[in-house]
Design a protein around this nucleic acid. Structure first.
Lengths: 127, 127
DNA sequence: CTACGTGCAAAGGTTTTGCATAGAG
DNA sequence: CTCTATGCAAAACCTTTGCACGTAG
């Protein structure tokens, strides 16, 4: 079996994602992690993201052509993408009710859904 | 002002997207277009997709880490991604009602929304 | 000590760009 | 004819991989 070690790099990357208010893109993760661990290389970030994803600790989210990552285990939620500042936030409310098994016109059997809202985040809306 | 010419390449690419039952990825567009126009180059596909997007004739959609393109002007709709065969379909029903201007808890001002459903398409569900 | 993990640099893919030629108007 | 559009090949990106060194256990 595979022995997975605990390293400062992995801890820092996991912490960065744990503290985030929404899914982060790779450059954001690198930047934030480097402020805690200056020498960190991009290859390690990619390798760690892949590892954490396989372990189910984080989850990839694709939004506007960019792959972002967020900590797992935060329950059912969706995302809000600010059209002004470009940041992405996690929303804990869900605007749809689609029980697994719902059948859509045409015979599409729904197993899951994903919603993204676009608009202005509180900060941008205030300015 | 810019003079935009009508060419066989542009026509073919626009037709391919117009005939599609859902958003297409670049390799799909290239393949389908090449069956009508063998010598077509990938660079022309990218340039044309960019042009048509700027003109508002098509619309990019990101799904599962891939950027796809669909003809515009088909009204409000969403997408269904088949978890078995991987194809993406356009749905003409909408499971949410979010008038522009809706304010979400925390002060997020909603301007638009995007929904993707995952499950089995009619064909896969039947087998 | 013995692997696994890391950083660096090179390799792979995909998208964009430069340039000479083809073709729309 | 003139000037935009195309195809090819090179360049620019982003992500993955190979390798020698660092380090957790």
């Amino acid at each position: 079996m595979t022995a997975t070690r605990s390293t400062r790099q992995r801890d820092v990357i996991a912490q960065v994602l744990g503290r985030a208010t929404g899914p982060l893109a790779v450059p954001e993760i690198l930047g934030l992690a480097q402020s805690d661990l200056p020498g960190l290389g991009i290859a390690t970030v990619y390798r760690t993201l892949k590892l954490l994803t396989e372990q189910g600790q984080i989850h990839p989210v694709t939004l506007d052509g960019e792959t972002r990552y967020e900590a797992a285990g935060k329950g059912h939620h969706h995302h809000f993408s600010c059209t002004r500042c470009g940041r992405v936030f996690t929303l804990h409310t869900c605007p749809v009710t689609l029980p697994s098994g719902t059948v859509y016109p045409g015979g599409f059997v729904v197993e899951a859904h994903e919603v993204t809202l676009y608009g202005q985040c509180p900060e941008c809306a205030a300015n």
